[in-house]
Design a binder for these strands. Sequence first.
DNA 1: TTAGTCATATTGACAGTGTCAATATAGCGT
DNA 2: ACGCTATATTGACACTGTCAATATGACTAA
Lengths: 224, 224
Amino acid sequence: MYIDDVNINLSKMTTAKSTSASRPYHHGDLRRALIDAALALVTEEQDWTFSLREVARRAGVSHNAPYNHFSDKQDLLVAVAEAGFERLRERMAAAVAGIAAADTALLACGRAYVESALENPALYRLMFGPALVKPKGSRPAAARQAGNKAKAVLLDTIVRGARSSVFAVTPDDAVDQGKAVFFAWSVVHGLAMLLLDDFLEVELTVGDLIKEIERLALMGLMPR
Amino acid sequence: MYIDDVNINLSKMTTAKSTSASRPYHHGDLRRALIDAALALVTEEQDWTFSLREVARRAGVSHNAPYNHFSDKQDLLVAVAEAGFERLRERMAAAVAGIAAADTALLACGRAYVESALENPALYRLMFGPALVKPKGSRPAAARQAGNKAKAVLLDTIVRGARSSVFAVTPDDAVDQGKAVFFAWSVVHGLAMLLLDDFLEVELTVGDLIKEIERLALMGLMPR
DNA sequence: TTAGTCATATTGACAGTGTCAATATAGCGT
DNA sequence: ACGCTATATTGACACTGTCAATATGACTAA
């Protein structure tokens, strides 16, 4: 009844093999199945207003089974966001891999960032938005850590550029680097958000616009 | 029963005076009262998951009265977002007013933008987020128009800077100006979003960070 | 093997939600 | 004065998140 459509997921399983033998829990790896189902729903519906019950239905369990793995609907969404940040990190890391020049690498990284956002807008908004924040609370640690791991890719590239004097950033000055990272991140994040919020109204393809924005970020608004 | 706590709102009334005489509808300007109540709820709770019924309660009407003025809960939220954009526009316009130098004006404008966002994060996220978008639809025209009016302040400043050769932007070239506007907007929007999403992790005050980001936007990441 | 334990899952219940349909009310032009 | 129509209410429905109580069955120790 609820065992047969547990999807055999490809990525690493932390707690179970779940291929069919030796399932460590009562009914397969439900926690992962729920995250997968929720991720699929976010992607399909481009929204996270679906009901927890719907997620349970998709996973083939009763409407209350999720409460054994997540304290809350929000708690499940946090896990989904974490998965999203991990994807983003992988993608940015892949983009910079093997590019020697730091400025070129930074552009590739920025492009990967924006493209990822455009491919799954709702997931992005979930990751960065307020949906994960409890009333009067702050962003859950899990989400912040996952986000910072993605940020580390950016930082790495900036540091490389600082060392090779490609960027006007003092090497080994954490604060100066932090500013630069925050600037770069702001640019790509703002660009991505405005694009997927449908506020682009200029006669340019998205690709061209990204290039232009990147050029401006490197060269600045003022004449040289 | 439902008349007495209609708040006498300060701003311009489009359809009614509503001071107490000559109320044009059955029971005061309910549409405005609902928008005000929703805006207050967004501000207080920093969230828009409150129920439509709660809004109605605040306005002192039955749970179904709002449906005479808004087709939907979303429809009401669109109206709230519109009001938010209008506030933003006013604030940016005030910031640039009377500043002759375009670059200084642009910085003031950016600061006003970020400060507004930080003062009412939820309202900002509502304005720019997906909450207004119907499934498989796009951003409602009303919201986009209101957003573009705010953008116009930015554009104006950029154009001034282009004319006075303060910015490296070709005057009277709409596309070139569009790029610059989008860049500037991306920077402030991304900065604002990351700040209020709690992703700032550098040993700087917000004010200092804003200044640094602005400097980088004007001068670029690369050495001059 | 068998008994027991405890994580895991189900069933049932409850207040609250968005929204529809039907009904009531009152300000307006004629 | 009268009816029209915009405005508001009442009632209903399926659905939601979450709590409490109950069932189930995989492992562990005897």
